[in-house]
Amino acid sequence: MSEKKQEKAVRVGGSKRTAAEITKSVLAFLLFIVYMIPFLLVVVNSFKRKISIVKTPLQVLDEEGLQFVNYSNAYVDMDFLQAFANSLIVTGCSVALLIVLSSMCAYILVRKNYLACKISFLLLISYMVVPFQVIMIPLLSIYGSTFNMLNSRLTLIVMNFGFGTCFAMFLCHGFIKTGVPLALEEAAIIDGCGPIQTFFKIVLPLLKPILSTVAILQVLGLWNDYLLPSLVLVRPKLHTLPIAIRTFVGTFSSDYGNMMAALVMTVVPVIIVYIALQKYIIGGVVAGAVKS
């Protein structure tokens, strides 16, 4: 709230439209266009034939009009629907697990000072400095060579949960500590609620703001994740979008039209969601970064 007020103050302070103001606006928009050019070029070229992409990549339209054939080719060749569904299942289930179970974990770690809670908290926060590269090789040795659990979306989902739970717990931990009044829970207990009921009926609804931050950060990270999924999901039927697009480009690397179409199809769903939820996404990203 206060942020908004101050933003307004900034705007009011600079309301005099001078030459300097206009220069700034022009500069900012020019920079913005420069930032967007790579996307624009890919979109434009996805509607062209290979020959005109190679010869005149800057030309907006193909001489023979818009070419939709790239899209139908890419759609079939990279098994787009399957990859999209895989991404959706993996991201959706992982985030659902993360939200419910990490907030439960955070709750007990805040409210109880058992020795187990203190140790758990220390272990979880110390993972935040460990890069995935250190876990990668033994993880694959254990769950690939020994237990043969690869090539399953469920394995990836629980792994995503195991890796993500630290940061999710950390964000919830801070929020519960300062934002959830103990008196509410005590009242619920006096009214006869057990600990589980108290959590789901009283605490969880209060955690909405921080849980939306957690969800946004995790969806962004997991939807685009490549390294872990590529190690776990080897069978083509299970590929998520980032793996599918890499396999696709590797196989049809000279076919620029199809490649452009595949890239556009991968990016567009994300952009649509972004346009719809832009305010929350930006808010969530900032909140997540500042709290860490």
């Binding site: 179970l101 993880l139 890796f163 739970t165």
Partner: peptide
């Protein structure tokens, strides 16, 4: 409360 998180964390980290 903490069981699922700590179990996954122990197994995978």
């Amino acid at each position: 409360f903490a069981g699922p998180s700590m179990l996954a964390f122990t197994c995978f980290v």
